Computed example of a mutant assay.
Amino acid sequence: MVAQSLWMQKVAADPAHSSWYIERFRAMARAGEDLTGEARFIDAIAPRDAHILDAGCGPGRVGGYLAGAGHRVVGVDVDPALIEAAEEDYPGPRWLVGDLAELDLPARGIADPFDVIVSAGNVMTFLAPSTRGLVLQRLRAHLRDDGRAVIGFGAGRGYPFGDFLDDADAAGLAPDLLLSTWDVRPFGDDSDFLVALLRPA
């Protein structure tokens, strides 16, 4: 059994946390805020009708947009409440409850590897630190040899960018491009956010 994610530790400490998170994004959507920047980026780099894994999909905003753009989307999240919200708000993708550190989609009937894997919303920083490298290995195992993994998260969340890139390298993922935002600004030493486009090494 792998260590419990930091997200599920939050949920255990505050059972209302998931509901708060779901309602936060629903309220932002009602207010007309732009919640699809990450998804537009993924749509731009993906082949048409791509097979896309939304790893740590939360309540479904990224995967839902990508399915609406014509992609074949599977979303996985450890929190059943978030998956329930994704199913309600964004029907179409296949939404699954699962721990990314134990990801084995062929065992759940999804044999085809993915053209693109996206992990947005600081997912990497909500993992148990002891499982980060394992999660990256599991993502690599589900990625086509000519596919891309796109992972974004902020600084100051307990996972230094250099450590992440070392873990990615150890998992067989090499950087193609490093950006500081989902709107394609270059990454620099002073960047407080990382969007890493990774390819199989």
Results as ranks from 00 to 15, higher is better:
residue 78 V to I: 13
residue 90 Y to E: 12
residue 81 A to H: 06
residue 174 A to E: 14
residue 146 D to L: 10
residue 149 A to C: 01
residue 155 A to M: 06
residue 172 G to T: 00
residue 132 R to Q: 15
residue 194 L to E: 12
residue 106 P to K: 12
residue 153 F to D: 04
residue 132 R to K: 11
residue 83 I to A: 04
residue 198 L to I: 03
residue 199 R to H: 05
residue 92 G to S: 04
residue 98 G to C: 00
residue 86 A to S: 14
residue 56 G to Q: 12
residue 19 S to A: 15
residue 186 P to C: 00
residue 70 G to L: 12
residue 90 Y to R: 02
residue 143 L to K: 01
residue 174 A to F: 15
residue 178 L to G: 11
residue 55 A to W: 02
residue 134 L to K: 05
residue 5 S to N: 07
residue 93 P to G: 11
residue 187 F to M: 09
residue 4 Q to S: 14
residue 186 P to K: 00
residue 142 H to E: 13
residue 51 H to M: 06
residue 130 S to P: 10
residue 102 E to N: 06
residue 199 R to S: 11
residue 91 P to Y: 15
residue 40 R to C: 05
residue 58 G to E: 00
residue 53 L to R: 11
residue 10 K to L: 13
residue 26 R to Y: 10
residue 23 E to S: 14
residue 53 L to M: 09
residue 187 F to S: 01
residue 24 R to Y: 00
residue 30 R to V: 00
residue 165 L to P: 03
residue 39 A to G: 09
residue 2 V to M: 15
residue 85 A to L: 12
residue 137 Q to F: 10
residue 72 R to Q: 15
residue 16 A to Y: 02
residue 45 I to Q: 05
residue 189 D to S: 11
residue 132 R to G: 15
residue 68 G to V: 13
residue 136 L to R: 03
residue 30 R to D: 01
residue 41 F to E: 08
residue 173 L to F: 05
residue 184 V to G: 07
residue 15 P to H: 02
residue 38 E to G: 08
residue 168 A to F: 00
residue 77 D to S: 10
residue 133 G to H: 01
residue 97 V to T: 06
residue 138 R to W: 07
residue 31 A to W: 07
residue 82 L to V: 08
residue 144 R to E: 06
residue 144 R to Q: 06
residue 169 D to W: 05
residue 185 R to A: 04
residue 5 S to T: 15
residue 178 L to Y: 01
residue 182 W to S: 15
residue 4 Q to H: 02
residue 117 I to V: 02
residue 186 P to W: 00
